[in-house]
Amino acid sequence: MEAYKRVALARKKTRPTGQDFIDNLFTDFIELHGDRCFGDDPAMITGLGMLMDMPVTVIAQERGKTTKSRVKRNFGSSHPEGYRKALRQMKLAEKFNRPIVCLIDTSGAFCGIGAEERGQGHAIANNLMEMMGLKVPILSIVIGEGGSGGALALGVADEVWMLENAIYSVISPEGCASILWKDASKTKEAANCLKLTAQNLLELQVVDKIISENHRDFKNVYRELKIGLYKCFQKNQALDHQQLTEYRYQRFRKYGAIETITE
């Protein structure tokens, strides 16, 4: 399938959102709000839930389903307080030794006056740095659109998985076409060049696993994720903290490592 078709599928309005995944993967979920600094960001849902018999911290980007909820959720584009809320919950997960699940679905961190004033760049940077050192297992799943730094801010994990029709990109194909070629009609071509599909990214080792969507039967997706998450957390909880953070460091250290660029 050509890359742009995946882009369209990943953004499809009827596609399950973060909240759907929460409802189907966890029981006893309780949402916990606020960054304790500025406010609560509705584009980011954070809370606690049970993954079978395992308490976990859940961080999910939420685009919204109806026009009204999409506006409320800012179409899934977080402000700095969203990233700070996520980090606050991750730090609590570390304190109470709970694994962390991150569900990525955003076209990007919000670009606006308030977001810049309150340090969007700083908030993302801080997440990247702190996630690298968290002493509990983290698993990130790109469920829809993984838009650049605003997605990566939840993507520094022990393993990164991707749904079959999800995309993950350094820039939107539209942005790429208009910046590089000053031509919006080249969006499809840009989508191809950016190597943003799950299959592309598996080959580049940016993601570790693709979750098949089984012709968009998400029941099977949820089942596979539930079992997969559980097994992965069990395995990683057996590691000591140093092994775990070393493993995570090396996972990201390999991209463009000197051995690969001097080949």
Binding site: G133, G155, L194, L201, Y255, G256
Partner: peptide, 26 residues
Amino acid sequence: GARMQEGMLALMQMAKTSGAVKRHSD
């Protein structure tokens, strides 16, 4: 910013460098 001609491998440098900063800081 990130160099779009290197796709996600460019984006991953944000995580990689942040990891190196973190270790130096720790």
